[in-house]
Write a protein that binds this DNA or RNA. Structure first.
Lengths: 228, 228
DNA sequence: TCTGTTCTTAAGAAATTTGTAATAATTATC
DNA sequence: GATAATTATTACAAATTTCTTAAGAACAGA
């Protein structure tokens, strides 16, 4: 059972899409703007996003760029504009397909099916983008969920892996404790200690001398970063 | 450097496409009909196929069906017909995208790039030969459905075999319990216990010491993998 | 239908991970 | 140097995930 997030501000269209998708046994989540979409996306395990381009506040392309910061979920754009430039813009930020309104519901379904098929078949469901990150002596493999320190495998817990992945995907960027909490736990931060403790545990595993970390550094009063 | 096969009977269009693709540093192979296309495809290591639908003799859809018999190479259809039914037909036999003529060359390139981006993990889009897989002391024969452990045949049930096959085809890749369920049973997962129990039974058959598995390892909180 | 095999379900045990809270150490500011 | 704020460390309790076992349901072949 696949979860599809429909981001569309026009209620009627959203409702229509929902009906078609539910008929095909897809789970549907709805959002009427970009901010809402990000919230749902971070909370649920979404397999595909249907995204309207024209929306109030944060538009579809901005929203997809946000999503792309830490996900390679397939995205299909919906738009009333049919100019080629828009299409290209959409595809180059990592959209997987593009449908112009008004659209034939059967075509919509066919494209959704086609898109999901690509991502679930055995051989090609893997996206190369950030599957393997190597910075300094640390290598993180998102497929095998392995972390190598100078070539030596190190066991990490799921949360440790997620935190390390977040930081290594954005080397040198400083994340506040709250930011880490929100991105990794997908819920509002309330106890900074939790993150601190996990950071310490990660350091113990990847740093030669955890007291003087070479990679996972603190930026006083601001947060943590992975230096690379 | 990617190899793209352009199958198009109209010489002018083929030539135009060739120019665009070569500009982007793609290798281009051309074929003007389905039979020719299959010959080139079998000979060269093709990474993507641009296929015209309307062609003399064997049409584009038939050709792709032939290709699909032993390859999952990405295919983008080109067509003068813009009726929705054709689009759907194209997508459902395993095409990855669909462009109607006349098309904007930039859009064509954007779609080619988008399509290739996801296929780079297996360079030629062809499923790795998986008739016989040998990893460590375990040999799995997909034709005779036999499993050898250090040369000694071991009886496995159909489901056990499928699970083992999935994991061994993707050594070191971690599959979540749900993923295993969906891929092996071909239906949405609902009871993780089932998978767990099968994993245990497989371990009993292939591991020297099932309590400390050498091959079929758990990645805590994430899933299982076949280590090799 | 009978029989033997395979598969699913369930429940408790075991193992591992995660959160908490108390205390120590460090850094910045005055 | 004293003080306040921030981060580090530690140990243990709680929560979560996986393992194991066994019973019976479903299935296939004779």
């Amino acid at each position: 059972m696949y979860n599809i997030l429909v981001v569309e501000d026009e209620k009627e269209i959203a409702a229509a899409i929902e009906i078609y998708l539910k008929n095909q046994n897809y789970n549907v989540f709805k959002a009427s703007n970009g901010i809402e979409a990000l919230k749902v996306f971070n909370k649920e395990d979404i397999h595909l996003v249907l995204m309207d381009i024209m929306m109030p506040e944060m538009d579809g392309i901005q929203t997809v760029m946000k999503i792309r910061e830490n996900s390679t979920v397939p995205v299909i754009f919906l738009s009333a504009k049919s100019e080629d430039t828009d299409k290209i813009l959409g595809l180059n930020i990592g959209a997987d397909d593009y449908i112009t309104k008004p659209f034939n519901p059967l075509e919509l379904l066919a494209r959704v099916n086609s898109c999901l098929r690509r991502y679930t078949s055995y051989s090609n469901g893997i996206l190369p983008q950030d599957d393997v990150i190597r910075i300094g002596g640390i290598e993180l493999n998102n497929i095998t969920k392995e972390v190598l320190v100078d070539g030596v495998p190190v066991k990490t817990t799921p949360l440790e892996f997620k935190i390390l992945h977040l930081l290594m995907r954005n080397p040198n960027r400083v994340f506040s404790i709250e930011e880490i909490y929100e991105k990794v736990w997908n819920e509002p931060a309330y106890n900074p200690d939790t993150v601190t403790v996990h950071i310490r545990r990660i350091r113990e595993k990847i740093e030669i001398n955890p007291k003087e970390p070479k990679y996972l550094k603190v930026v006083w009063g601001i947060g943590y970063k992975f230096e690379g």
